[in-house]
Amino acid sequence: MKRILVIDDDPSITSLLRRGLSYEGFQVSTAPSGEEGLRLARETPPDLVVLDLMLPGLDGLEVLRRLRSADPQLPVLMLTARDTAEDQIQAFGFGAEDYVVKPFRFEVLLARIQARLRQRQARSELRYADLRLNPESHQVFRGSREVVLTGLEFRLLHTFMRQPERVLSKSFLLDAVWGSDFFGDTNIVEVYIKQLRQKLGEPRLIQTLRGVGYVLREKSPGR
């Protein structure tokens, strides 16, 4: 469930958005001030922020600046009564991804939110050859086929996808996937590599370099 943080000091707005967005399947938190909004964002990082410009205490632009400093990829949608071109230019200059003027239609705001979330998901997707892995939705696709993985299989593939064509030793994979405090059978790496290869299918993308480790690499003809 995607988390949305609404930072606005108008209780009628926050009430409307809490009800409407919750009905659409989002987890919604609200804050009446910039300071409270920043605290909630630190404690439970949201997937998107809806932010008013005119707030008590810290103004919306300063809140925006701090949010983007903490997470440059966080989508922030401005929802404000200030409708001048100068206000919009300033907000986009501080890193806002969208700007909706009050009064607004909920359906329009919802469409904007969904579009920004789709863009964020697309940006976070990792690709190699015909393989796609999305760390946010925990989905993996080989071509058009979805590959269903266990949690450990997903973490193992994620480790390879973040470092394609780099040779990773067994000890590196044990530490990255199972943790430095793992004291079980080190053959577990081979077991999970085999399972992952079977699920991903052919042509094989995870290659073995005997005595060295494993690498995510397309096999060259004749090798």
Rank of each mutant, 00 (worst) to 15 (best):
K2P: 01
I4N: 02
V6N: 01
D8P: 05
I13A: 01
T14N: 12
L16A: 03
L16T: 11
L17G: 00
L17W: 00
L21Y: 08
Y23Q: 13
V28W: 08
T30W: 02
S33G: 12
R39E: 12
R42L: 14
E43Y: 07
V50S: 00
L51D: 00
L51Y: 07
Q73M: 13
L74A: 12
L77I: 12
M78P: 05
L79N: 04
R82L: 15
D83R: 13
T84V: 08
T84A: 11
D87R: 03
F92Y: 09
F94W: 10
K102P: 02
P103S: 07
R105P: 09
L110N: 07
R118S: 11
R120M: 14
S124Q: 11
E125M: 09
D130L: 08
L131P: 05
L133M: 13
H138L: 14
H138P: 00
H138T: 07
S144W: 04
S144L: 03
T150H: 14
T150A: 14
G151A: 06
L152Y: 01
L157D: 06
F160Y: 04
R162D: 04
R162Q: 13
P164Y: 01
V167D: 02
V167E: 03
S169H: 11
S171D: 15
S171K: 15
V177I: 06
S180D: 10
F183A: 12
T186S: 06
L200Y: 03
G201N: 06
I206R: 03
T208D: 08
T208F: 04
G213T: 11
G213D: 10
E218L: 12
G222K: 09
